[in-house]
Design a binder for these strands. Structure first.
Lengths: 364, 364
DNA sequence: ATGGTGTGCAACATCGATTGTGCAAACTCC
DNA sequence: GGAGTTTGCACAATCGATGTTGCACACCAT
């Protein structure tokens, strides 16, 4: 019991009266190929089991230069990324490998350093989620010959899976404008009689695409879009609070519709909104491009777009495993359509291009 | 450029006209101890740099039997655990090691298997958060001589850091009962004129302690506690919805106070609460033993207890690094006291034993 | 008996870094 | 100038598992 720990194949070999190589073959399953008698293999496996042997994975990885580690780099542990991480973990473990999840805090240097680190661990594959500097990272991986894939933030040099932000934004905008109709029974032409886009970062493709989708639909519905309606200035919660507060001042009240880009912005905006009287809130149609369960339970209805994290991750694995060339695959999000009265949501998956028909259609 | 990759110290040695051992010493910083001339060391480091050398960590780990990996096992990626993970990551990287975060889905077998896996990776230390079967895991780690520590769920056999659930619950209960007074201007003696405890799992110490704290304060305030007031039946969201719905039926309305144990239960309860008219909600004082930012922004005030994840993790590191014997260290949570009118919260740290004074006191 | 074909396993080199040991050359000191 | 010390580095063993090679033996057919 209190003997020195850490059995090795040599210990087992000794106890089994066999050679280390035989033990190795027996234990790693290659014994059939290596023409070890079944009896021998079973005997060795038995001994290993009751000796509590477990292989030294460093040694194995050193020898085989495959570590069985698969890593995921993400910016932070928010709801969306955490969901991604969860799904990722499951998928990796289903493949009998070990998931490693690292947050790099949106710091490009941290990202580079982490990739370098992981390279030294002969990581088997690498997932980048919401990465800050995709191209550079891809080159780094290519140099180290590490298969990799990008999720949520596309990369020109590697397979990528992203949400169809443009279409999602279009549909969310459509839904917001419908609610506006219902709430107002018609729409005037004042500066408040339109939808404002709040939050995001225009240097990121996802924000750009959402703005594009927003714009598409605004032009389709209202015939025009004043650039001043797009306040894609920040993902920061506190700044968002300020932005909407300023907007409120400027307009002399809430606009009739708000397109809120991400849950952090949502939270920031809510800090301000919570101070407003009920009837003002109920005169505005809200949409959030992110899913936040509590959003369904506020004192006013909020439509929400939810990215399909499971699908995103699964497609990413598919691309990785099929050794895909650099392509960008788009996944349609779901919309949580808020009942205006109940605050209860109806979940509706979205088909590609569905918005263009002017209708949200359920898939068959 | 397109040559075979993966430089080794042998390659560098060749190019530097030195021996591999000299290169090794130069690169890993031990060159001073090994009496390598500074000039030589610098020359080698220079060459390594522009050759893009990076050490094979498997080889190093195999030789030194220290991997530089520190792992965290947690049940799932919810808000609390994700925060823990975030803090953990930072702390580990601050120590120049590599954080590994794995979720085991509340499955004891998964936990055991994962620990076994990590053992094989010669992990340097192991953090268990909210583990299901602490004692068994501790024994496993002891056998493998892996330093380890428990967070949030205590273990009798290893150092543990947990939130002072009992005191937190006491204070939350106190806060709820205060709100009740304010809302009702006095409290009757009907079955609804009291606080109900909703959610949790009595097989877990945390729930037991929270129930104990709840009970302490109820007896202090009301003189008695009917066991039927404690519905610590589940952490499951859907079950929680059902439980509160049943309670509502049974009592013919909401009780005057609700102690909600965890955010998942909160979310479940809200699904039901969202269907109630405003005045019923405003006649009930809510408290949640978990922090959920959106909770501050509902149409009724909710007091919340927030565990100090940063402190929990930091104390855990402290215990680990001081090679602590099995002790259980308690960390006081914070309370987010909801303004009854505004829904805005006041954050108040809690001192140990503060509740017993009948007052919540700020630390000095 | 002889050669040919399988079968079952052991020997040994190897992955890349670390580290104890040894040994020249340079440098002291009397 | 010879003994002793220091400086600077190379050699070689080692961590534990893998996989190629090769050898001994058994079995079969001619």
């Amino acid at each position: 019991m209190t003997e020195k720990n850490k059995k090795t194949i040599y210990d087992i070999a000794l106890r089994a009266g066999a050679s280390p190589s035989t033990v190795s073959a027996a234990l790693n399953g290659t014994w059939k190929k290596r023409r070890i008698a079944q009896a021998t293999a079973e005997r060795i496996i038995g001994i290993a089991n009751d000796d509590g042997y477990s292989a030294n994975l460093q040694a194995r990885a050193l020898r085989t230069s495959r570590s069985g580690l698969v890593a995921l780099l993400m910016p932070e542990y928010n709801r969306f990324f955490s969901n991604i991480a969860q799904t990722f973990s499951r998928e990796v473990r289903a493949r009998n490998q070990c998931p490693i999840i690292i947050s790099t805090e949106r710091n490009p240097d941290e990202e580079r350093a982490t990739v370098a680190d992981l390279t030294s661990w002969s990581i088997d594959a690498l997932f980048f989620v919401g990465s800050v500097a995709p191209e550079e990272l891809s080159l780094q991986c290519q140099a180290a010959e590490i298969p990799h894939v990008f999720v949520d933030q596309p990369c020109a040099l590697a397979p990528s899976v992203i949400t169809d932000n443009r279409n999602g934004a279009r549909i969310l905008t459509q839904e917001i404008s419908r609610s506006m109709m219902r709430l107002a029974g018609g729409i005037g032409t004042g500066p408040r009689d339109t939808i404002y886009f709040l939050g995001g970062d225009r240097s990121l493709p996802s924000t750009r695409n959402r703005v594009a989708g927003f714009s598409d639909e605004m032009i389709a519905q209202f015939g025009r879009l004043d650039p001043g309606q797009v306040l894609a200035t920040t993902y920061d919660m506190d700044v968002a609070t300020q932005t909407i507060s300023d907007l409120y001042e400027r307009l002399g009240g809430l606009p009739r519709g708000l397109f809120i880009n991400s849950d952090s912005v949502f939270e920031g905006a809510l800090r301000f909104l919570a101070t407003l009287p009920e009837d003002e809130l109920n005169a505005c149609a809200f949409g959030c491009f992110d899913y936040e369960p509590f959003g369904q339970l506020l004192r006013f209805p909020v439509h929400m777009i939810r990215q399909r994290h499971k699908m995103l991750v699964q497609r990413a694995f598919a691309l990785l495993e099929s050794n895909s060339p650099p392509v960008i695959e788009q996944v349609q999000p779901e919309i949580y359509r808020a009942g205006v009265m109940t605050g209860q949501a109806t979940v509706v998956p979205i088909r590609p291009g569905a918005a263009s028909s002017g209708e949200i259609t359920n898939p068959v």
